[in-house]
Simulated scan of single mutants.
Amino acid sequence: MNGSLPFGHVFGVPLRMHWSVPVLAVLLGYGLGRQTLPAWTPGQSAAVYTAASAVGAVLLMASVLLHEVAHAAMARRKNLSVQDVTLWAMGGMTRMGRPKTAPVALEVAASGPLTSLALGGAALGAGIGVRVVTGWGVIAAVLVWLGWANIFLGLFNLLPAVPLDGGRVVQALLWWRTGDRDRAERAADRSGQVIGMLLMAVGWVAFLRGAPGGLWLTLVGFFITMTAGAERQRSRLHAALRGLRVTEAMSSPVTTGADWLTVERFIDEVAVHAHHSALPLLDFDGRPSGIVTMRQLAAVPGLRRESVRVREVATPLPQCTVAAPNDLLDDTLDRLRPGSGMRILVLGDGRLEGIVTTHDISRLVQQHTLDSKALR
């Protein structure tokens, strides 16, 4: 996700945080310190409320992280690849490979909400215990707030709307019952779009009636609607590409260029003769070292093009999506790296064999559409 930065690893999975997370933490902390805690435990100093609200907001963000880590841990346990976990204002997102069976899909989807509900119950129980032992203090109030927040997070995520976990659960159950993955995905995607629009309507009415939280609900509904629509398109794409190998989509031969050339020489000798907007680079040994786009080349100021090497502005190989010729195409698309676009370098024994671009994928989808119509 654009605007996110790495901040660690867990179980070998990279963790990323979007810039909206600190903003959300500040807003949550402000509401907790200025409204909830003074109402529940009046008479404390501003410093106590501020410190307690900061701790509460951080613990809630940690709870959201644990929710996503539960997905990642279950996926790894089921031998699914996990690319990364990203926290952002709407919660979190775990990028992973597609489950091969309905039971695996169900376990992975349910692990997050169950973790949130367990955390909520534990925090709520701890808050009640602290209250019984020491009285209704700030610590107890923060724990009770954290408990209810996690319970709400778990229950809200169980709404039957893709991309929420509840939508994934419904999808897995329909797949399990019917044996038809495509049908289950279409049903879950439609459910997500319907529920997203309902949330938008309810949130907007609430906002017009003076409830500021309604605006947030409208934004959440809009996100669900848009994401469910994107998931529907993604499901159609996977259906069209199912069973195809990378070699069936790749363009080969493909124009390449030496990564030690200056930007000016590369443009004059390679880029102006190319048929793709993204060009693989080769090192001195003829092995792929990365990929450069026309946009990256154009971004280099004219006066610097004589001195800057093309490899200095290119995307290095470790940040590119790579695949072997016999890899399944739909599995490879699931592994697209953030910000790399739909560009896949096809390597065999460390040598470049071709490239897969958006144009190549579009061609296959159009051929699938023609074949489907011919069978009718």
Results as ranks from 00 to 15, higher is better:
residue 9 H to W: 04
residue 11 F to Q: 12
residue 15 L to P: 10
residue 18 H to A: 08
residue 19 W to P: 00
residue 20 S to C: 08
residue 22 P to A: 12
residue 23 V to F: 14
residue 23 V to I: 15
residue 24 L to M: 14
residue 41 T to I: 15
residue 42 P to C: 07
residue 42 P to G: 12
residue 43 G to P: 03
residue 51 A to G: 01
residue 54 A to W: 05
residue 58 V to M: 07
residue 59 L to F: 03
residue 59 L to P: 11
residue 61 M to I: 15
residue 61 M to P: 11
residue 64 V to G: 11
residue 71 H to V: 11
residue 72 A to R: 06
residue 93 M to D: 07
residue 97 G to V: 02
residue 99 P to N: 03
residue 101 T to C: 09
residue 120 G to I: 02
residue 122 A to G: 09
residue 124 L to Q: 06
residue 126 A to L: 14
residue 128 I to E: 00
residue 129 G to Q: 04
residue 133 V to F: 01
residue 137 G to H: 03
residue 140 A to F: 00
residue 142 V to M: 11
residue 149 A to M: 15
residue 151 I to D: 12
residue 152 F to I: 15
residue 152 F to W: 03
residue 157 N to M: 09
residue 167 G to W: 04
residue 169 V to I: 07
residue 174 L to S: 08
residue 177 R to V: 04
residue 182 D to K: 08
residue 186 R to M: 00
residue 197 M to E: 06
residue 197 M to S: 09
residue 204 W to M: 15
residue 206 A to E: 09
residue 207 F to R: 14
residue 219 L to A: 09
residue 227 T to C: 13
residue 230 A to Y: 02
residue 238 H to F: 09
residue 240 A to C: 00
residue 245 R to I: 04
residue 248 E to M: 13
residue 256 T to W: 04
residue 261 L to M: 14
residue 268 D to A: 14
residue 269 E to W: 10
residue 270 V to M: 13
residue 271 A to R: 12
residue 279 L to G: 02
residue 281 L to S: 09
residue 285 D to W: 05
residue 290 G to T: 04
residue 290 G to K: 07
residue 290 G to A: 01
residue 291 I to A: 15
residue 292 V to P: 05
residue 297 L to G: 10
residue 298 A to M: 07
residue 305 R to P: 01
residue 309 R to E: 02
residue 309 R to S: 10
residue 317 L to P: 12
residue 318 P to S: 14
residue 318 P to K: 15
residue 328 L to M: 11
residue 328 L to I: 03
residue 331 D to A: 03
residue 332 T to K: 12
residue 335 R to F: 02
residue 337 R to Y: 00
residue 338 P to L: 00
residue 342 M to L: 14
residue 344 I to V: 15
residue 360 D to V: 08
residue 363 R to S: 14
residue 364 L to H: 00
residue 366 Q to I: 04
residue 368 H to D: 12
residue 370 L to T: 07
residue 371 D to V: 06
